[in-house]
């Protein structure tokens, strides 16, 4: 497994990682996030995202709860220790209070679909500030 971290962009920000097994959702979010000027890395499966996160420490990860057999929250559980600074946005098609609580407990932002783009943009901008000022 490669030990190098995610390629950083010219201004020092890492890419925004997007994980969703629904291809059209993934493409839509990717396009919007790119439109706002962020680089993106996308994954369509839990396994691929997990393999990537085993060596990368991205600033932001947007992850769907439903990833085939897996729950997106597992990615947080399995990578948080290695990458504590990563900000997680958990996206879910249904508002389950239990999952919302668990995501919040992990320090993640829980968003339901359809996405509130204003909230998403605000969150991404808030996260890039410490990185750019550093």
């Amino acid at each position: 497994m490669a030990q190098e971290s995610a390629p950083a962009t010219t201004d020092g920000r890492g890419p925004v990682v997007i994980v969703d097994d629904d291809v059209s959702c993934l493409a839509a979010v990717e396009q919007i996030v790119r439109h706002w000027g962020h680089d993106t890395v996308t994954f369509r499966s839990f396994e691929d995202a997990r393999a990537y996160l085993a060596s990368a420490t991205p600033a932001v990860v947007i992850v769907d709860v439903r990833l085939g057999n897996y729950n997106g929250l597992q990615l947080i559980h399995f990578s948080q220790e290695r990458s504590p600074a990563t900000q997680w946005l958990v996206v879910s098609g249904f508002d389950d209070p239990v999952l919302r609580k668990e995501a919040t407990k992990l320090g993640a932002l829980f968003l339901t679909k359809p996405l509130d783009l204003g909230k998403l943009k605000e969150h991404l901008e808030r996260n890039e500030r410490p990185a750019t000022s550093a």
């Binding site: 057999n69 897996y70 729950n71 399995f78 249904f94 389950d96």
Partner: peptide, 11 residues
């Protein structure tokens, strides 16, 4: 399905 997603946090 909702029970599955609550139980299946770590698979």
């Amino acid at each position: 399905e909702d029970l599955f997603f609550r139980l299946n946090v770590i698979r």
